[in-house]
């Protein structure tokens, strides 16, 4: 049974949201595969469990605080050395704002 849970067009949109460039062939393939996975997930979509609280985390985590003290951190030159491009002690990226 092949159901179209997610269309090729929606797949392209999701890829853009996720900042992934995909080809037309990939969009078709992912639409088919994601539809199969989402069809399987219908078993839980159909459950009538509106009153059940969600579990976001297996361990109850509260705010964790620590003393605000200066401690050594990562070495800046070592961190920048791992970046594809860096200059003047900063990560370097293509222009974000328009010319002006």
């Amino acid at each position: 049974m092949s159901t179209e849970e997610i269309s090729v067009e929606e797949t392209r949109h999701v890829a853009h949201l996720a900042r992934l460039a995909i080809s037309d062939d990939e969009a078709t393939m992912y639409a088919r595969q994601l539809s199969a996975i989402l069809t399987h997930a219908r078993d839980i979509a159909a459950l009538d469990i509106a009153s059940v609280e969600p579990t976001r985390h297996a361990v109850a985590v509260k705010n964790i605080t620590r003393a605000d003290e200066v401690v050594p951190s990562l070495d800046r030159s070592e961190v920048l050395a791992a970046a594809p491009r860096a200059e003047a002690n900063m990560f370097s990226v293509p222009r974000i704002l328009g010319e002006g």
Partner: peptide, 21 residues
């Protein structure tokens, strides 16, 4: 931006999309 591969694009969005692809 901070580590690993970068494939340059015309702008930052295209850089993200090409790098991740």
């Amino acid at each position: 931006v901070r580590f690993g591969l970068r494939v340059e694009g015309a702008d930052i969005t295209e850089t993200y999309e090409k790098t991740r692809a």
